[in-house]
Simulated assay, not measured.
Amino acid sequence: MTAHAAFEVPGNRIIDPEPLVRTGRSWTKWIGPVISVLILASVVYQLRQMDVRRLAALMPSSPVFWTVIVAYYFAGPISEWIIFRRIWSLPVGGFPALLRKLVSNEILLGYLGEVYFYAWARRHAQISAAPFGAIKDVTILSALTGNLFTLLMVAVAAPLFGELHLGMNSRAFVGSTVFVLLLSAAMLLLRKRLFTLPKRELWFVTFVHSARIVVMMLLAATAWHLLLPSVALTWWLLLGTLRQLLSRLPFLPNKDVVFAGLATFLVGSEHEIASAIALFSTLILGGHLLVGACVGLSELAREGHQE
């Protein structure tokens, strides 16, 4: 079965919102190529800003490290493929669409990837019910699961933050935590209106999102440990957990600076830790640019062939 083949949505009879149905599929014909062009333009622009020589000099040669980096990068799209495989019986041929979704969100604009994936589902698949509800539920549950993990981490790490004096504004920290708590509570209270998938599917999606968060934190910690073996893996696991926490708090400025300060205070070796964290982040960005170039060119090539 290819990406253009039909797949079904078992037991799902929800239809798309009327404005989306009324516009038909005309907009889905051009949204894919437009996003692909934007991805390629962003790739070219960011490559000009990247110090490729310095990055190449810092790259380790360990195959284990590169295996961990690749696993970390693809953990998100693989988890989403598992989810939509369950909901839609999505074939393997649909995986590139999830990669475009990831790259669109990361190097263009948050949630633009969901728009692209919806357009792809409308155009390239015959679904027994509309894809809007499933994509919406999966996206909301991703945010809700991340928020709940963040609140759990706040409860564990709050005393640590108070003792480190890392320059974080306490009001911003408390305000961010309250915001996440209220947003999560609102999602739970309005779940009957927000969600359209059956309860059993919602629990499955939540489980996969939770597993993804844990796996990605473990992989990030392992990658940092391989870069700096002298630093115990347990410290990197703690730092990975706190990095996840900081990434979810909306009112804290300069999160990367705060995280670097936290890592330095806890572990020491400021220059080495900063370099390891910077290299990891740069490699992930490089992965986005490489995948973005590949999926962008393949999308445009396919559109040109179809014409």
Results as ranks from 00 to 15, higher is better:
101 K>R: 15
177 T>M: 05
173 F>T: 04
164 L>T: 07
182 L>M: 15
192 K>E: 08
184 S>I: 03
183 L>C: 12
164 L>V: 00
106 E>H: 14
150 T>P: 01
78 I>F: 11
186 A>K: 05
119 A>W: 02
85 R>S: 04
118 Y>D: 02
106 E>C: 10
194 L>V: 02
120 W>L: 00
152 L>R: 10
191 R>C: 04
164 L>F: 15
130 A>K: 00
121 A>L: 07
111 Y>K: 13
148 L>F: 08
155 A>C: 10
130 A>W: 05
111 Y>A: 15
96 P>L: 01
99 L>A: 01
97 A>F: 11
172 A>Q: 14
126 Q>G: 13
147 N>C: 11
177 T>K: 09
92 V>D: 12
175 G>A: 07
188 L>E: 09
95 F>W: 00
94 G>I: 02
125 A>V: 03
173 F>S: 04
116 Y>L: 15
111 Y>M: 15
140 I>D: 02
155 A>V: 13
154 V>M: 04
119 A>H: 05
105 N>Y: 09
102 L>Y: 12
149 F>R: 07
129 A>E: 09
125 A>Y: 11
175 G>R: 03
118 Y>N: 07
164 L>P: 10
197 L>V: 05
72 Y>E: 11
69 I>R: 01
178 V>E: 01
158 A>I: 01
75 A>I: 04
108 L>W: 05
192 K>R: 15
78 I>D: 06
109 L>H: 10
73 Y>W: 10
119 A>Y: 07
143 A>F: 15
122 R>M: 04
178 V>G: 07
153 M>K: 13
184 S>H: 05
166 L>P: 13
113 G>I: 03
90 L>I: 00
87 I>F: 08
194 L>Y: 06
121 A>C: 10
124 H>Y: 14
157 A>Y: 11
155 A>D: 09
124 H>Q: 12
112 L>S: 14
124 H>C: 04
153 M>T: 05
156 V>Y: 11
120 W>A: 10
179 F>S: 12
181 L>D: 02
126 Q>W: 14
167 G>I: 00
123 R>V: 01
176 S>F: 01
170 S>K: 13
127 I>E: 07
143 A>V: 15
82 I>L: 15
69 I>L: 05
89 S>A: 12
